[in-house]
Design a protein around this nucleic acid. Sequence first.
RNA 1: GGAGGCGUGCGUGAGUGGUUGAAACGGACAGUCUUGAAAACUGUUAUACCUUAACGGGUAUCAGAGGUUCGAAUCCUCUCGCCUCCGCCA
Length: 418
Amino acid sequence: MLDINFIRQNLKEIKEAARKKHVAVDLDKLVVVDDERRSLIKTIDDMRHQQNVVSEEIAKTKDQHKISEMQKLKKELNDLEARLHVVESEFNLLMLQVPQVPHESVPEGESDADNKPVKLWGEIPKFDFPVKDHITLMKELDLVDFERGAKVAGFRGYFLKNEGALLSFALWQFTINHLVKKGFIPLVAPSLVKENSFVGTGWLPQGKEEIYHTQDDLYLAGTAEVPVMGMYQDEILAESELPKKFIAFSPCFRREAGSYGKDTKGIYRLHEFMKVEQVIFCKSDTDESVKWHEEITRNSEEILQALKLPYRVVVNCAGDLGLGQVKKYDIETWIPAQQKYGETHSSSYFYDFQTRRLNIKYRDQNGKLQFAHSLNNTALATPRVLIQLLENYQQKDGTISVPEVLQPYLGSKIISKK
RNA sequence: GGAGGCGUGCGUGAGUGGUUGAAACGGACAGUCUUGAAAACUGUUAUACCUUAACGGGUAUCAGAGGUUCGAAUCCUCUCGCCUCCGCCA
């Protein structure tokens, strides 16, 4: 959510942002609705003032004439309040659709195909044998059971098995340890979450099709960003505790509506997966946001570097940005069998878009309340990253060598047939 | 799932229809005093919106939403949250 005064003063810029982000929102209508809203509030406030003054007189004089005068006023007031009610809900609905303005460095574009690479790391491995894809590798080494996964959990269901499971634990543990050393507070976050946090983070109302909804009116979060942001809703933080840095583990659920035909094989696109997510609250300062954005991106790169997986960083084009995002980097990691990079991380910042919706503030040095800024990035998502890990580490004899940094967690150096 | 209780400001807690945005105590902050600290004393201590050049003024908010009333923290209805006991359960 943006400040309505900011919207009114920068209407052209916001319209441009909506165009770039492909967001359909009638901003002219918003202004008209806001005009009516403002004038109603003014009128109603004045009438209430009169009501307060006269009521006080009545308390003393019990003047029957004034009472009937106020009865009339009350009727008028009720009508206006009812109208304001309607206008305000219209106003709020429109406000929830107004996009954040992308940073000037964000390229224009329609979809992820227009994202621009900004960094390359690692060498693309050359294999002197036919490369197997992760599905083949996992089946041969008995690391996954798709058939029974589908039997039990339906389409896109899976069981991770043997080292497929153990590697996941190793990756989580390694990642969390790495970030805790950097001052991140570890969390295990809820996935079953109330609607508020989804609206507050910008996942709702537009993302309704993507999110599972339970019969108890709770929703299943597709990322720990949702619960961790919701954690501080309606709170005033101390400036001294900023930046607040969290590393949160949670199961993640996505309906993947609209992508029924996409990535139907393997473990790339799943309804249920696990993620270790970085979430930061920082001071209300655009430079601070940029600084921490670079840091959380670097943190994820460090993890890939420690795993010695080749990756590239792309800056997402405006068409590929979420409603509230100012700028986003995706990190894409090399998939040998497909000879291309595949998204494994997504790093974004929002300025105060989310914290305004969630009412998360802090008191600055001058005693003024400010909306904090928020950011988040994947630290590591499983099982997707197993694709890159297994394929890049495969060996001629069909075994997988275990990345050095994971060996202590896994207790072995090689994954071979049972 | 059954039975009961409770929701007031940073905290404890008063307030059951008319200057109560809200007593009192505590906490925090600032000042006086002190070499420094403590103690004592004094003062400050909500947020949002509207209005004003400014001083200031106005409206709303006592979990939330409705209702009764000229007037609601106080009465009524619903919702939400928390707590206790029983049952069930990892």
